[in-house]
């Protein structure tokens, strides 16, 4: 029997197939990203101080018990997805009041926003005046070498300087600020699962981002999330996002207190 030649297979189109596969996988793969909620631990205080008196209206308390049930401001909540709406309400309800309305409603117990934080309005002139005053106080404290006061006035001064920056960035006549003590308080118990704890933070973040996005769109025509992402990636801040973000943060500060469960 004669030996027949096995014909060579044409592999010319193999490269096409390989490219097709490569491009398909390039397009469809998503790489698992590390994502998280960034929070700040308060600085340790050496001398324990009595907690300051805070009005109930300025506390947004979220409690979670050992059985993973939730309570917001004394009210049992079944669905954790409701937290973000409640946080939004907490920030928004009194925000649009004018100065006179605030003055008249702050004492009015029948007003629906009575149990919510009120806003204050300051003008640039007032801020500049405060900065001047604090600078003088600081100088005096430095001259007297009273370290505690120096730290105190320095703190105050930076706070007012931030406000000055913010009002200039926002180009507003008045800076509308939430009560400085207004905060979100997360109270958990020892056995509360991390899943619920993370859910609470997720809901808080969702609400905060919504508020900040709204303000950022209004003042700078760009979303807050986009700006902060760009700032994260570019430490040198070539696009000047840092200033914008700090201005929005003055409007909607992220004040969250996480209370350590007692053991």
């Amino acid at each position: 029997m004669a030996k027949r030649d096995i014909p060579e297979i044409n592999a010319g189109s193999m490269a096409d197939i390989a490219f097709l596969l490569l491009i398909f996988f390039l397009v469809t793969t998503t790489m698992e990203k590390d994502t998280a909620y960034i929070r700040y631990i308060p600085k340790k205080i050496d001398i324990p101080q009595p907690p300051p008196d805070i009005e109930n209206r300025n506390i947004f308390e979220i409690r979670a018990n050992a059985a993973n049930r939730l309570m917001i401001r004394g009210e049992i909540i079944e669905n954790p997805d409701d937290i973000s709406d409640r946080v939004l309400e907490f920030y928004r309800i009194n925000r649009s009041l004018s100065g006179e309305q605030t003055k008249s409603l702050i004492q009015n117990e029948s007003y629906k926003g009575y149990e919510f934080p009120f806003y204050s309005r300051v003008t640039l002139d007032q801020i500049v005046k405060e900065i001047d005053k604090n600078e003088k106080d600081l100088e005096r404290a430095e001259a007297d070498e009273e370290e505690d006061f120096v730290v105190f006035y320095l703190d105050l001064l930076t706070k007012w300087q931030k406000k000055e920056q913010a009002i200039k960035m926002l180009k507003e006549k008045e800076l509308v600020e939430i009560h400085p003590q207004a905060h979100i308080r997360v109270v958990v118990q020892q056995e509360t699962e991390y899943k619920l704890f993370a859910k609470i933070h997720s809901e808080i973040q969702e609400a905060l981002i919504e508020l900040r996005d709204e303000a950022a769109m209004k003042y700078f025509g760009e979303s807050y999330a986009k700006m902060s992402k760009r700032l994260d990636q570019d430490k040198e801040d070539k696009k000047g996002d840092g200033k914008k973000i700090r201005a929005i943060d003055v409007l909607f500060p992220e004040s969250i207190i996480e209370v350590k469960p007692k053991g």
Partner: peptide, 16 residues
């Protein structure tokens, strides 16, 4: 890991 929304991407921090 639990699920959440609006979380911050940590990649830039990792790179630095």
């Amino acid at each position: 890991r639990p699920q959440g929304v609006s979380a911050t991407d940590l990649t830039p921090y990792k790179q630095r």
